[in-house]
Amino acid sequence: MGTVASIQNLTVQYGNFVALRDFSVEIPEGCVGLLGPNGAGKTTLIKTLLGFVDPAAGGGTVLGREIGKHDLQIRQNVGYLPEQDCHIPGLSAVEYVAYAGELGGLPTNQALRRAHEVLEHCGLGEARYRPVETYSTGMKQRIKLAQALVHGPQLLLLDEPTNGLDPLGREEMIKLVRSISHDKGVNVLVSSHLLPDIERTCDQVIVLFNGELRAQGLIEDLKRVDGHPMVVELREPNSEFARSAAQVGLNLIGPHGTGFLFEGLDRPEETATALFKAARLSGAQIRRLDLAERSLEDAFLEAVHA
């Protein structure tokens, strides 16, 4: 898998405050979550990628183009959804998105055509002739996404896309982002401090804390627990099962929800085989057998407090 952006030894300062400190990261293709508490440097990283801030040291590339030297070419291929409410006053949705397309370099007729398409895709087809000022918060988030998409970017930078949305709006926005990244082939970098949103939209995450990189990788890897412990759920309660498991060499760590959590053997396959053997011995029926994993929240907290 290739990378969409590469950052090396980046330091960004606002006066005496260091927002990013000697930060290096490779942002892979696909849908990547940028996780971190408020003030971690997520928005600063996005603004650096867009060339909005001048780094005190270091640099990098976005889509193979050097930040600071080829900012226009970078922005030609990048769409940005800012965190705060933003629109161009006095325009209807279709005028606004078409204008954003023209600013992105599309000829007028193409910009208008794509504005209609993108608004339809973002679920604003019915409301496209309404002034943006009259939109609800959810619609404003969608139109921010539409203006970011209209010029056909290869990379979308989404800064808190579910900010201020009600549960239904949040659900729809998550689906939309996932569809854009997974069905339409657009690389997406989603910045958020809402872990469930990231977990549902992204395949990989980058964890920032105090301007430093704390963790990076596939979400499933980050959630994995050392030693391959396994969770077993039985169809019916069976008091013999734990004893049989001990007989076949498995250590019970404790109950886990409605099942049991067992320490893993050398390889997950060995643990599974032993668990099936224990079930046969005790006459229990296994309903679920899975590698135990921690929540993304636990993984995040561990990375942040490391």
């Binding site: 867009l50 909005f52 226009l72 070419q73 922005r75 030609q76 990048v78 769409g79 940005y80 800012p82 705060q84 933003c86 629109h87 161009i88 954003a100 600013l103 992105g104 370099g105 203006q147 970011a148 010029h151």
Partner: peptide, 8 residues
């Protein structure tokens, strides 16, 4: 932010 995030 809209203007300057585009190639402008």
């Amino acid at each position: 932010l809209v203007y300057l995030s585009k190639p402008v």
